[in-house]
């Protein structure tokens, strides 16, 4: 592409550069995948190809337990953060305090994981103490454990982490939606909810699904906040890092990380494909609008 006079070779060279950058960024990932297929494991002088480690994932109870925990966290994060992102995007569209809303929702991107994790850790510990103190005063104990480190606190960390991404993805999809269609539906007699479900949602579905994929992938890969806030149980990444920092990752762990990356890459790959199909359809529509099929 480009204009008609620019050199094809400079265009190809730029493409090559772009792919080279992506490849370099992916290098560590490829390396992990490479190791996961080695019979002799990481750092061995000899390379023997095998699927063995993939089979052994399912007999590694520590890894499987952690996988289960991660799935639960990812599921709840999905169920909470995606609707929240949707509501936040609708709120953003309607509110007049746009700057404040968007700053609040996007600033978690700018706060490093360790800093937010530490602050939340101390926050929850304090809440816990406050709950216990108040409980003692009142002589009740049923809310003593509300804010103990565990699933709840880990979830809060994950929601804060994923919400900005979900918000942005949904907001960008909503940007292509013509608000007047909602008004048209209202004017046909639809309630606000009917207009959303029957008219708006079918058109922003792609964005919501991408947001779901984001939420799951981010949850699976998150380490810092979860490890600070999770309390006693393990997630995939916390198992992996404790292995890394101690005796080095087990072969099954390499296989597990690769497996997760495969799934994630397949997911994103299908999203890319889906948007490809979608965007070509949208382009066709745009062309059709620009050049009416027939006049009158």
């Amino acid at each position: 592409m480009g204009d008609d006079y620019s050199s094809v070779w400079s265009y190809r060279l730029k493409w090559l550069y772009t792919l080279l950058v992506v490849f370099t960024l992916m290098l560590p990932v490829f390396y992990v995948i490479y190791v996961s297929f080695n019979q002799n494991g990481f750092g061995a002088a000899e390379y023997v190809f095998t699927f063995e480690w993939y089979g052994e994932i399912f007999s590694d109870l520590l890894l499987l337990g952690a996988l289960g925990n991660t799935f639960i966290l990812a599921g709840i994060t999905l169920a909470v953060a995606v609707p929240m992102g949707l509501i936040a995007a609708k709120f953003y569209k309607a509110t007049e305090a746009k700057l404040l809303t968007v700053s609040l929702l996007l600033s978690p991107l700018f706060v490093p994981a360790d800093i937010l994790g530490s602050a939340l850790l101390v926050f929850f510990k304090n809440l816990n103490i406050a709950c216990a103190t108040i409980g003692e005063w009142l002589g009740v104990s049923w809310f003593d454990t509300w804010f103990e480190l565990g699933y709840f606190s880990a979830l809060v960390g994950l929601i804060i982490y994923t919400l900005p991404y979900i918000f942005v993805v949904i907001l960008i999809t909503m940007g292509r939606y013509n608000e007047q269609q909602t008004e048209a539906a209202r004017s046909c007699g639809a309630t606000a909810w009917q207009a959303f479900v029957q008219v708006e949602f079918p058109q922003i579905r792609a964005g919501v699904f991408s947001a779901c994929a984001f939420a799951v992938i981010l949850t699976f890969n998150e380490y810092t906040r979860t490890s600070l806030l999770k309390g006693g149980y393990d997630t995939i990444t916390s198992v992996l890092i404790s292995q890394m920092l101690n005796e080095g990752m087990s072969e099954q762990s390499y296989a597990m990380s690769s497996l997760i990356s495969f799934i994630a890459i397949a997911l994103i790959g299908s999203i890319i494909l889906y948007t490809l199909v979608q965007s070509e359809r949208l382009e066709r529509e745009a062309r059709a609008k620009a050049e009416p099929v027939m006049s009158g």
Binding site: T18, L19, V22, L25, M26, P28, V29, Y31, V32, V35, F42, G43, I217, L218, F220, N221, E222, Y223, I236, T237, L240, I241, M244, M249, S257, I260, S261, A264, I265, L267, I268, I271, I272, T275, L276, S279
Partner: peptide
């Protein structure tokens, strides 16, 4: 789509990516 290529590295945990830089 081209920009989406750059989120591929994020499909693998940051910690694994960083750790894999060692070897």
């Amino acid at each position: 789509r081209v920009i989406l290529l750059f989120i591929l590295p994020f499909m693998v945990s940051e910690i694994i990516r960083i750790f894999a830089l060692r070897p």
